[in-house]
Amino acid sequence: MFQTLKNFYHKLGSYPWFYKISGKVIPFVGVLSISLIVISSIWGLFFSPIDAVQGDVYRIIYFHVPAVSVSQVIYYSMSVAAAVFLIWRMKMAGVYIKSLAPIGAAFTFIGLLSGAIWGQPTWGTWWVWDARLTSTLVLFLFYLAIIGMQSTFASRKSADTAVSIITLVGVVNLPIVKKSVDWWNTLHQPASISISGESSISNEMLIPLLLSILGVYFFVFFTGLLFMRAEISTREQNKEWFKKLSSNN
């Protein structure tokens, strides 16, 4: 078991292997993610029932929750990659961080934007400096710092090292984002979906929400693979295996 995992880990670090496998996986993931997003959007926007307190406005939850949820998960995975890069010097981890950071930033931005649009009619304001909103903004700034630092170093290796350190520093912010609504008096409400206990959202509304979350996760998987392939091809364009591959096609 351990040996298989170790083999898989070593294969994951190899550019040609990753390039070959990801090319096969991408079409399936793409179709799956886009169909899930379309189905859940239509379900959530037209067929799920009206909320008793907020009316139709609550439907923005089908965009807000998947976006902020995936933006945090992307950051967690990036910090694991950062630790792997710093300890084992696995180049693929650097590729992973560089490719996923723009996607994470985009989804954090969507989360902030949809939250503002939701906050205006319900709370009465676009933005408020409460702990949840501020810590999410800090997350967005960390993404921007990671993207910005990529181009400030002469060598690829030192850029990847510095970016990994910044990524690790920022991971401390994530538990704060998650727990802020419990630790402080915030305007933002606590989480509705609970894995361990009972969710405080009724089932007719919860199922399309879970579908949309799943769809967005697959979408990130899909775009992540695309971005990583693009990054690998720029880094390896002069290598033998890549030239052979592109001359075959």
Partner: peptide, 18 residues
């Protein structure tokens, strides 16, 4: 000078609540 409404994390269909 500013009033903000705070809503909770419960989402219930209108018909069910009625």
């Amino acid at each position: 000078y500013q009033i903000l409404a705070k809503h909770d994390e419960n989402y219930v269909p209108k018909e069910v609540k009625k």
